[in-house]
C-alpha cells in the first residue's frame, strides 16, 4: 500500500514538473518600421512591445505604446506622435489574432500564418501575416514582416512633407516569448 502511495505521489510530482505553460509572454518584443523614399529613409524601433500567446487555443495579443518608438532624430519622433499618429489621442496600437494550424509542442522551426485585427488610431483592419516560429526548450521566437498602407489608418501627411514619407510602410517584428508565470 505504501509503495502505491509513493508511486502515486511520484507521478503527481512528475506531472506537475513537466506541465507545459499554457501562456507565453514577452514584455520586450521589437517592432520596427521603415519608410523608404528617394528623398530620405525613416526608421523607428519600439523595444517594449507586450505580447501574450495562449498555447491552448493559439490566440495571440499584442499591445504597444506609439510614443515608445525611437527615431534617429527627436523631431521625427515629435512629428510622428503629434501630427501623424496623434499618440495623445490614440496612445496604443493593438493586434488580436490567431496563429493558424500552430502546434506548440513541435520543437524546431515552423512557418505559419497569423490572422487577426490590427488597430491603429482606433481604426481596425483585418490582416494576415506570414511568420517564422522557432521553438527551443521553453522559448518561442516569432518573427515576420508585413506592410502597412498609411491611408488605411487615415494618417494625414502634410503635402509639403509627402515626398519624404512612403505610402506603404514596411514593418518587422521579433518577439522572444518565455513561459508566463504570474
Amino acid at each position: 500500500m505504501n509503495k502505491i502511495t509513493s508511486l502515486l505521489l511520484l507521478l503527481i510530482l512528475f506531472t506537475s514538473f513537466t506541465t507545459k505553460p499554457s501562456k507565453i509572454i514577452t514584455r520586450q518584443g521589437q517592432v520596427s518600421f521603415f519608410s523608404y523614399t528617394t528623398v530620405e529613409n525613416i526608421e523607428a524601433k519600439n523595444n517594449q512591445v507586450l505580447s501574450i500567446v495562449n498555447l491552448e487555443n493559439n490566440e495571440i495579443a499584442i499591445s504597444m505604446l506609439m510614443n515608445a518608438f525611437v527615431f534617429k532624430k527627436a523631431l521625427m519622433h515629435e512629428h510622428f506622435n503629434e501630427s501623424y499618429i496623434e499618440s495623445d489621442l490614440y496612445p496604443k496600437a493593438t493586434f488580436e489574432g490567431k496563429i493558424i494550424d500552430f502546434d506548440p509542442t513541435f520543437k524546431g522551426d515552423q512557418t505559419k500564418i497569423i490572422k487577426g485585427k490590427l488597430s491603429i488610431r482606433n481604426i481596425t483592419k483585418n490582416i494576415s501575416i506570414k511568420t517564422n516560429i522557432t521553438h527551443k526548450e521553453d522559448v518561442f521566437l516569432i518573427s515576420g514582416k508585413f506592410d502597412i498602407v498609411v491611408q488605411d489608418f487615415k494618417i494625414n501627411i502634410p503635402p509639403i512633407v509627402a515626398p519624404n514619407i512612403a505610402k506603404t510602410i514596411a514593418t518587422e517584428f521579433r518577439f522572444e516569448y518565455q513561459p508566463y508565470e504570474k
Binding site: E40, K73, L75, I160, V161, N164
Partner: peptide, 16 residues
C-alpha cells in the same frame, strides 16, 4: 524657404 526650414527641422534635431 518654408520647404528648406521644414526639411532642416525634420532631419537635424538631435535626441534629448
Amino acid at each position: 524657404l518654408i520647404g528648406v526650414y521644414w526639411f532642416w527641422q525634420f532631419t537635424h534635431t538631435t535626441t534629448i
